[in-house]
Design a protein around this nucleic acid. Structure first.
Lengths: 210, 210
DNA sequence: CTGACAAACGGAACATCGTTCCACATAATA
DNA sequence: TATTATGTGGAACGATGTTCCGTTTGTCAG
């Protein structure tokens, strides 16, 4: 459903106008590969064989390696795509809901991302230089996204103003660390608690009855 | 040099009197494999291929797999061997030096172990069930070793008494975490600082001039 | 519309792993 | 010394990441 937006996001973020704009079938292959990789990583983990991904994408191995010369390139691409999707969700939610509700929904969205990508996180901290740029990308995309939501909500007097985006991102990530297996509702409850905490110290000019 | 003691320690700790005491050539092979694995892991990391280890040990691959049915078994054996060697060093140092000096030397010894085995630590926290017993083994061997040194030094009034072995082990490990590459002297200096800290709060019945 | 060609495709083939298997060698024992 | 359980070596297997190259196909000038 949100796949188109994701694919666009990746294509745009890849390399600013890189000579030529990819042939039609090539673009199709890339999209299919990213979608398949996302699904396979979710079920079989990041160590899943590349052939499985190529098969699921309905594409030959040669095509996969043409698009992603190394296995790690695919992992990186999927990760960045997911980060982009999460970051892009912020302005969309901001346009659709009132400030604090948009903030709350985005934080849940972000928590889902963290829980799903715990497998990737392992590779990420494995010291492999192929992943060295991902932490920076993570912060540079997600921090402004959250900051925008926080500031909007703060200006509306719906949440307190003494919280830094970076700290909040880390707090949520840490909360999700102990959410094993299918106990995803634990994470949800803890995030709700965090949001309530943000609301508690809101500007006194607006009152939030019970 | 200390290889014999290590081999003995491993053989003794493996499985209390496991039916028969291994044939002579088999014992030779096992020792050679552990020694080779230790060296190869140090140079090529824990991901080094088994064939490289077998070759360095001067044995066939079949022999390696007879002694260590899985690759992880070799890693575990090397790790335990190193832990044993580190733990066994405690009473030896205690017999050779006065209490606080023995403690200081052992802590340096332990720090060297941590720095050298950072590669192993990665595998250790990878979630692979093959390594699940290692953390416990780590604590059960090292904690009493350090406790003995600490208590002896405390009884001699040379160090303070309000430090738990577990905390000290973790503190040293954390200090060594940021000691990258060849900056091992950084770790040494920090450990010295810790030892001085221990001495600082020593029992007042003994004074330590300048 | 059509030909030509760069681009993309598919998958066989290669290199390298961990692991298994078994014919042969050898240490322990009587 | 003869017997036998035990150990050894390395070819072979299956799975993996990656490369190579003959074939197909989108694209675009004419």
């Amino acid at each position: 459903m949100s796949q188109e937006a994701i694919a666009q996001g990746d294509n745009a973020g890849r390399e600013a106008s890189n000579s030529r704009p990819l042939r039609a079938d090539a673009q199709r292959s890339e999209d299919a590969l990213l979608e398949a990789a996302l699904a396979v990583f979710a079920t079989s983990g990041v160590d899943a064989p590349v052939r499985e991904i190529a098969e699921k994408a309905g594409v030959g191995i040669g095509t996969l390696y043409r698009r992603f010369p190394q296995r790690s390139d695919l992992i990186v691409a999927v990760f960045r795509q997911q980060v982009d999707a999460c970051a892009d969700a912020a302005p969309i939610l901001a346009a659709e809901y009132e400030p604090s509700e948009a903030l709350a929904r985005w934080m849940q969205r972000y928590a889902d991302f963290i829980v799903t990508k715990r497998g990737l996180a392992k590779s990420l901290h494995s010291g492999d230089p192929a992943f060295s740029t991902l932490p920076d990308y993570f912060n540079q995309r997600l921090q402004p996204a959250l900051r925008g939501l926080l500031e909007t909500a703060a200006e509306a007097g719906e949440v307190r103003t003494d919280i830094e985006p970076y700290d909040l991102l880390r707090a949520i990530a840490n909360l999700c660390m102990s959410a094993k297996d299918d106990r995803t509702d634990y994470a949800r409850r803890m995030i709700s608690l965090l949001v309530d905490g943000l609301r508690y110290g809101a500007s006194p000019q607006v009152n939030t009855p019970s």
